[in-house]
Structure formats: structure tokens, C-alpha cells
Design a protein around this nucleic acid. Sequence first.
RNA 1: GCGGUUGUAGUCUAGUCUGGUUAGGACUUGGGCCUUCCAAGCCUACGACCCGGGUUCAAAUCCCGGCAGCCGCACCA
Length: 575
Amino acid sequence: MTDTDVMNIAKKRGFLWSSFEIYSGVAGFFDYGPLGAILKNNIINKWRRYYVVREGFYEIESPTIMPGEALKASGHVDHFTDPMTECKDCMEVYRADHIIRDAIDKDVEGLENQKLTEIISKNKIPCPKCGGHLSHVWSYNLMFQTLIGAKGKKTGYMRPETAQGIFIPFKRLLRFFRGKLPFGAVQVGKAYRNEISPRQGVIRLREFTQAEAEIFVNPSNKKHSRFSAVADQTLTLFPAENQVKEAGTVKVKAGDAVQNGIISSEILTYQLCLAERFLSELGIPDEALRFRQHLPTEMAHYAIDCWDVEVKTDRFGWIEIIGIADRTDFDLKSHSQYSNEDLRVFIEYDEPKTLKKVVAKPDMKKFGPMFKGNSPKVKYALEEVDAGTVQKSFEDEGFFDVEVEGEVYKLTPDLVGFEEKTETIRGEKIFPHVIEPSYGIDRILYSVLLHAFRNDGERAYLKLPVDMAPVSVSVFPLVNKEELAEIAHEIRDNLRLKDIISEYDASGTIGRRYARSDEIGVPFAVTVDHETLEDKTVTIRNRDDLKQVRVPLKDVYNILRSLLTGEKRFEDLDA
RNA sequence: GCGGUUGUAGUCUAGUCUGGUUAGGACUUGGGCCUUCCAAGCCUACGACCCGGGUUCAAAUCCCGGCAGCCGCACCA
């Protein structure tokens, strides 16, 4: 299996190690070894080029420990849980709501634990396995809890997603972006989930890295200004409808997907396209990618539309590596409520709206003598009432009663005048909607390794994209002779001074060195041989086809640089 | 979290049933020899009984507990 081969290389050559090994390890935690750490940074930096540089979203960094209130507002304290029950006899543990649903065919999602416990005991629901008694229902919260401060009075949690760290300083962000939608902010960092039983290597971690963008948009305008740039891009979609009908995926052009209403908005579709380009630059082939729409039942209740980018793996099947959701205004609204801060945005109309309306104008010269000290109150009360109602009452009854603090005052037409007024409304305050692409970096790194792996029987190697490979250049002396070794060392040191990560290797035969170098995906190898001594040329070898070209020593850096930036391809070099 | 199963160098493995030499081999890795382009050969070195208790004169081996991996179930807002 590819997974086995890749994980072997990852472990052996320093990409991924399970953590705390000398203490026999803890499930759900992984170390990035020397090469893994570089690869991860390469992926993240490419992500930044996509989202921060090209999209113009800015990156922020917020704490990984969050106070309870913030996660109460986001819903994680109450809802990021599973209701659990345990059989008192055989100790088997179950999801309480699933037990009930299976036993009495009733959907009890969202009920409190006490209610669930009651339902179980009232209906005498037994353990499905041994028939024993089930315990009371408790909530298993997937967040790691901790205490903040010396006295530990304040409950804190390790953040379960980086997104909340962007919603919370929304007012500051809005000010930074000078009050105008749309804008986006991103965060790259660790998030934590205390999974019940993580057993899928780097696929389900208890501590993992997310790269998330939160894009704030006007709910009434989910178009995208650069949509035309992606409209012709073909996406492999797996819409909810097809999943239900057990039909397959469909290939659709982005523009058509919006037109046909398969994807709910331009801006969401644009994000799908962006994700696809990103992954394909990481070397993940199109046929191993699909966009799966969430079924209405699995979608969080606040989302309108949500698409997972899934990648095909030999061991785990299709796994989610990116989630792209329209989260609507749920988060901002909720934080607004809990914090009493106005997290709305003022949207100015294209044209101010003018409203013509009739207002009642009390004649204060007459009000004063008549109502004495109460006249201001009567005036305010009158202004509260719709002027039309007053007018109508005058016509029908000849008077109008206003009630102020329990007392009724009779107004007659001679006390009140009417005036037509035009009011200008320049805009309104709204909660923006949030479009959220959320990348699981660890899973992406795994996918990159998985799909870079090649084994043609002769050799096993990682065909990593040139800008992803942790080590860019290997430098070898053809044979282990002092004169050759010296030049090879110089070349390596010179490349390092110019920011190209390179390694020297003189151990074993030349073939073994190439093999070692290929195994970790080094795209190019420079070999110093006897000819170098005569005419100051070296060979550059291409990892993917084993071909070599001879180039002048003085040009080595420039050539490698242009190969590594993608300016030139190896095939275009003069042989 | 439950049940089954497995833990010997970086990797694969012998030894465990039936307790008893210095825990053996292969590959890998480091050093050297040889070598004019793709894991060759020779010499040499480093490197292991998952952890903790117990039984015993003696434990890699038997017993108990823990941890981890794998498989199945469950779980994955």
C-alpha cells in the first residue's frame, strides 16, 4: 500500500514521527521531523502567497487558549459535545441519541442530557449488546479544558478552531479595513480536539494545524469581482443530490455551477476554484480530488452551503482536507449578543433613500397653557404615534386620544398641525455573512506525500513539486577523491549562502546517493566529476527522468535558481 | 471507550510454546578500501528484548497491570 510505503519513508527520513516515543507515545500527536517541518512551512508559505498576497487578506495571530465565555458564545461549550451513555454491565459506551433513535425511532437531537436519561429509563432501553442497564447520559466535550490564572478561577479551553480568533476582534478588523466590505482575514495555527479514539495517523490528530480565511461579505452581494478569471475552470463536484441518489460526481465549469445553482454563490465557487488550483500546484492530481457538498442533515444549522474538498487515499478512502462554508452571520450575531458589542457593518446605499412622510406638529403655544407641566410628555407621545392615524381620527371622530402614563389627553385638530417631511436614509447596519475556507494542513501534507510517491520497481521516490521539496539540491563528488570533494563542498556552501537548501553526500556509491536523494524528493543533483577539473563544468541531474545536462560551474546557481522558481523547465536546458 | 491481536537495533526477522552460553542473521546507517554516473563488492563500527510490578537461584521467555500499533464495533458539533 502506498500509505505504508509513504509512512515508512516519512518515519525513516524525518518527515513524521509519532510524538513522545520514548514514553511509548500518546495517540493523536505527531512530531514533524527536520524534513517534515520544512515541507509544512513550504505548504503554509504557498498558502500565504495565495490568500494573503494574491487575495489581499491579512494574517492575524490570536491565542490558542480561549476564555470560556468566548466559546460559550460560539456554541462550542454547549454543542461541541456528544451525549454518551455507558452500559453498567458490559461497560460498552454509546452515543445516547443514537441508542434512542435506534430503539424508539425518534429524533432526539439537541435534547438535554437529563431528558435523554429520562427517555432511556422510561422506555427501558437496554444495552443493544448485552441487554444490561444504561447509565445516565453525560456530555463528552471534545475541547481540552484548562484553568487560567494562579487561583484557577477562570475556565479556559484550547481553541477547537482558529476561526473564532478572527470573529472576536471583528470591530478592530473592520476599522483596519476602513469599514468596507468585502474583506478577509486569515489565521494559521494550532487547534485542539480531544478526539475519543484517534487511530488514523496524521489524519485525526488531537493537536493539528489549520489555515483558515474568514471572508466578510455583504449578504446581498455574493458575487466576486474576479469571478471571470475562474469561470472556465472545471470542477469535479459531488452535489448532495447525487450522494442521495447514489449517482457519481459531475464535472462542471465553475461558471455553470453558479448558473445552475449547484453551488450557492459566486464567491463560494471562487473559493472552490482557488482550493483546486492550490492543491494541483502541490502535485495532487485532479482525479484524486473532488468537491463533496454537505448533506442538509450533516450541515451545521447556521450554514447555507458547505463543500468539502476530498482527496483520495488508498488507506482511508476519500478524506476531507478542506472545508469551504458559507457560515452566514451566525458567528458575528452570536458574539454580538453575548458580548453586547455591535458587530454590524454600516452599508451605504448607492443612492440615499428619501422617504416622504407626514408628521404631526403640536402647536406648543396652545399645548403649554392646556397641559401645563405635562405638555412635553404629551408632545413626545404624539410624535410616537403614526401621523396618519391621528389625521384619520380627526376626520372620523373630530379628536384623538393620547395616553401618557395611564392618563388620557384629548387632542383636537386646532392643537395639531401636519407637515410633509422628507427624510434621507443613507444606509443600514447589517451583519456580514462569512465565507470560510478552512484548510487542514496536516492532512494536506499527508496527501502531498501520498500523491508524490512513485515506485517504478527500480526505485521508490517522492516526486514533490520543485518548490515543495524540503531539500532543493544534492551535491555529490562522483567518486570520493579529495579534489572532487572540495569543489562539491564549495558548490553546496555557495548555494546555501544564496538561500537554496542543499546537502552534500559522499557516502557509498554514486547510485546509492542518488537513491537516497530521490527518496526524500530532492529535485536536482549536481555531480562533480573528473571533467570538472579539466573544463570547470558539472552535471545537473533531474530527479524525475534521471537525465543529466552538463553546465559551466559558474552558471550552476543561476540555472538552479530558475529551475526552482519554475522560470525554466529541465527539458528546456541545452543538453 | 469495548473486544480480538501484536510489541526483539532505523527496518525485516530468529529465539518465547518447553525460563538457563556473550540475544543470532539480513538490510539500513557511520568510518575505511575499491570505484569515471544510478541501492555492486570487501573490511570495520554503532545499534534491540515497549514500560512497571510479580513468580523464580535465574525472565526476551511464565503471571498481572499499563502504554502503543493493527483489525472489528463505537465515535468523528
